[in-house]
């Protein structure tokens, strides 16, 4: 009885979570230029328009370029920091760990406004690369958390053995530590990539008048009425996120990455 209720409860939550996405996906297959559900006719034209229309294609490419480079920069900041904190006992260096976590926990509008004042003062307001740096600093928390987790999961006897055999720090890092941490590094990159792709307020405040990312493009387009192309872009976003996280789950241990001690039981 209670097991049945539990299943029912989870099913209802699942349906509510899926509902908006299902409706939007339905709308995106409409044959006409209207938002109706269930869809009238079937057409993939709106998906085609993402690539055919110069505006949408440009926004897509801009978003992908910003996400790819800011995620790389975030990992480049997070990795040495996580390595240092794991390798050495230096309590004051924890300060930088807090700094790396703060932008993500605070309401994003604050971080966005901080960047706006900074880039305006520095005289670079509106330059596309400022979005890359801003996103990287904003999202550095994600690779920092996953890579820190990766280091903490390394069996200390492995590095001790390597050191006993005469390997110096650099060799241990390259031959033992790096291969073990790589899955966590890749997941950190993936998390930062997907979130950068979806980020609106920071990109908008830093360079909203010169750089058009996909979320900015959608929001601007919303003001002039809804079109099925937006629905198609939404489906693209959901699909991209689902694909990236499925890959993370396929090649890594997702429950562990998200904080379960061990996921082997059950």
């Amino acid at each position: 009885m209670s097991r049945l209720l539990a299943r029912l409860f989870m099913a209802v939550v699942g349906i509510v979570l899926a509902a908006p996405i299902v409706v939007v996906a339905g709308v995106s297959f409409n044959a006409q230029r209207t938002l109706t559900f269930p869809p009238v006719g079937f057409s993939l034209a709106w998906f085609g328009e993402i690539f055919a229309d110069a505006g949408w294609r440009g926004a897509l490419l801009t978003s992908l370029a910003i996400a790819a480079s800011s995620a790389a920069l975030a990992v480049a900041i997070a990795f040495p920091l996580a390595w240092f904190l794991w390798r050495w006992h230096a309590p004051w260096a924890r300060l930088f760990q807090v700094l790396g976590t703060a932008p993500f926990i605070l309401p994003p509008v604050i971080t966005a406004l901080g960047f706006l004042s900074f880039w305006a003062t520095a005289g670079f307001y509106g330059a596309p690369w400022t979005v890359v740096i801003s996103h990287a600093v904003f999202l550095v928390t994600l690779p920092l958390v996953t890579i820190t987790l990766g280091f903490s999961s390394i069996d200390p006897s492995l590095t001790e053995a390597a050191a006993t055999m005469g390997a110096d720090d650099r060799t241990v890092l390259r031959t033992v530590v790096l291969p073990l941490v790589t899955p966590y590094l890749v997941s950190g990159y993936a998390f930062a990539f997907v979130l950068s792709l979806n980020e609106y307020i920071i990109a908008y405040m830093v360079a909203g008048f010169t750089v058009e990312t996909l979320p900015i493009k959608i929001f601007n387009a919303l003001r002039y009425g809804y079109t099925p192309t937006m629905a198609a872009v939404t489906v693209f976003f959901v699909a991209a996120a689902a694909l990236v996280f499925s890959l993370v789950a396929r090649f890594g241990d997702l429950p562990r990455l998200l904080g379960a001690w061990s996921s082997r039981e059950s």
């Binding site: 908006p20 939007v24 998390f191 979806n198 979320p215 959608i218 919303l222 937006m230 959901v238």
Partner: peptide, 12 residues
């Protein structure tokens, strides 16, 4: 779903 932009959630 958690990584979806507020724009997307709002539109949906």
């Amino acid at each position: 779903i958690v990584s979806l932009s507020e724009v997307i959630v709002g539109f949906a």
